[in-house]
Amino acid sequence: MPSLREIRGRIRSARNIQQITKAMKMVAAARLRRAQDRMLGARPYAALIAALLRDSVGREDAAAHPLLRARPAAAAGTGTLRLVVLTADKGLCGAFNVNVLRRAVQILREQGDKRKVEVVAVGRKGRDFFQHFGVPLAGQATGAIDAAAALGLARDQIEAYSSGAVDEVLLVGTEFASVISLRPQVARLLPFDLASVGADGAAGDPPAATAPPSYEPSRASVFAELVPRAVEAQVWRALLESQACEFAARMTAMDNASRNSKELITSLTLYANRIRQAVITKEIAELVGGAEALK
């Protein structure tokens, strides 16, 4: 039987852990709110720019832009596939990183023997994971998520695709449906998938088209500029979405941890009290026994 002091020590450490997890939950909740605002702000822009693109494509030849044209190699399941895997820099956020990585590994397994698959890791957790298992990285990005970093990431992918080094680019990330519903998601980034960006016209719809619009300076030049912008917007949106999911996952995980430590403290306290009573009972029995013997 453990001594009373040992158990009191365990209660103390459980209480300390609870304080830390509670604080982490609070921090995650505050950052989640900010991340959610940023994410909701980015959604209309991405949706509107995709809608504008879709609108212009409807009147244009669908294969008018190299970033929209599917490569025969990708259609045949050969060539080079690039996965951009969005994870967090830090752990302690439940299954968030694991879910994304599991999905990425699944694709690696399915596609690996058919075509060359390369990985771009965003977030320290993903980078460490692939390095540990000896998967060569075609690129990586860690640290704070800001517009400049997203732009750089998007431009790298566009460049790799345009140069012909890569035939298809997939984004593996997490979609934020609600705080308790975070879904790992695979979306095609390049060739740009016009159908993938849902038209959630929450912030307003594009102007109703009464007649086909004219383009200035010219249709081709607007189009050439529009496609990369749409790709950039999608990357930015996916990054913000992943970040919001990370904080939501951490908040839930830390809430569970706080609750578990509370349970642990309750049962340990009960156990400590039982031991304390057993000790008292034993002492009384000894006293009585001793008094009997003196008679």
Partner: peptide, 9 residues
């Protein structure tokens, strides 16, 4: 108001 439809960069 009433401008003709136009997409401009």
């Amino acid at each position: 108001p009433g401008h003709e439809p136009l997409v401009a960069s």
